[in-house]
Design a protein around this nucleic acid. Structure first.
Lengths: 165, 165
DNA sequence: ATAGAATCTAGAGCTAACTCTAGGTCAAGT
DNA sequence: ACTTGACCTAGAGTTAGCTCTAGATTCTAT
């Protein structure tokens, strides 16, 4: 069974342009061509494509993905290098997810900040008296709610039936 | 207390170039200037900067962050819009983290794939007999290990004392 | 047999987010 | 007073990762 570039593009939800670009950058040395020079993807090629898509999602630059594919094409002498490569990017991805978790926490506290302001009709309930500056105690209050067992995912949600229109 | 652009850049670990760029893009309408035209950041400005950094990390484009800052400068009439904005980006970030978790899962299975190949000295242990094609049963085997309670975070780790040098 | 759709290559064009240069001003220490 | 370093603006340059155009070829369905 073989697939045209368009069929592969559909399956992976990326454009044929992008696939050709990846090929140009050396990410697809494994794809065959038919006698007319058109790309013919094999079933087994999806194993590589899966890896490419994964590394892309992990934020690995295209050039580095190319290096990895090169290692794959070289054979068993590069098994350690390939392992190390994946190991490194696993660690980077774990670090990124930890950062994103902090980001999400922050977003949720700010959501709560606006939920409470919205319910009061004004942001000024969060200000230090007589200023336009946020009272640090407000963030502490939110932290306390979380420490007391509230789910930060829910705290910032507006109750039902609070739509503006 | 006020801070120069350089001091703020140091605190946030970003370059003064980048801060000026953000200013040019309308992200820093709240910063004061001294009589000579130099930026003077106030303590309260860090509340905004914190939000900007958070939204950046969340992957929000600079222009959209500018829109949000505009809402902030407008006053209480935009509280709902600000809430909605944060709500939307919370959802997007949750979706992204879910995708990254899948990516991480995949990376870990591939690490295990290479760990086992490395221990066998050849990737061909994963191939269907007489081919260069990966046996789908190999992935199933990994999934079974996970289903049986193994931690996917550990499965791919090489045992101690397996360094190549 | 043929029309319309897909594909090919080379190379131009685009966008986001910086990053830096040039030419000048300002501030702090000696 | 003078030097050094930080700061200013405007605008050019850079990089990654596409995205598209042009012009030619090939495939597919009637």
């Amino acid at each position: 069974m073989s697939y045209s570039i368009g069929q592969v593009a559909d399956k992976l939800s990326i454009s044929p342009y992008t696939l050709r670009y990846y090929d140009k950058e050396g990410l697809l040395p494994f794809v065959d061509r038919n006698p007319a020079g058109r790309r013919r993807f094999k079933d087994n090629d999806f194993n590589f494509l899966e890896v490419i898509v994964c590394l892309k999602e992990a934020g690995v630059p295209v050039k580095q993905i190319g290096n990895f594919i090169d290692l794959c094409m070289t054979g068993d002498t590069t098994l350690q290098d390939r392992y190390d490569f994946l190991n490194e990017h696993e660690a980077k991805l774990e670090a990124k997810m930890a950062r994103l978790q902090h980001t999400l926490d922050f977003l949720r506290w700010k959501k709560w900040y606006y939920k409470t302001a919205l319910q009061a009709g004004t942001e000024s309930i969060h200000y230090l008296p007589g200023t336009n500056h946020v009272d640090p105690a407000v963030h502490a209050e939110f932290n306390q709610l979380v420490a007391d067992g509230a789910d930060p995912k829910d705290l910032g949600n507006l109750p039902e039936g609070t739509a503006k229109a």
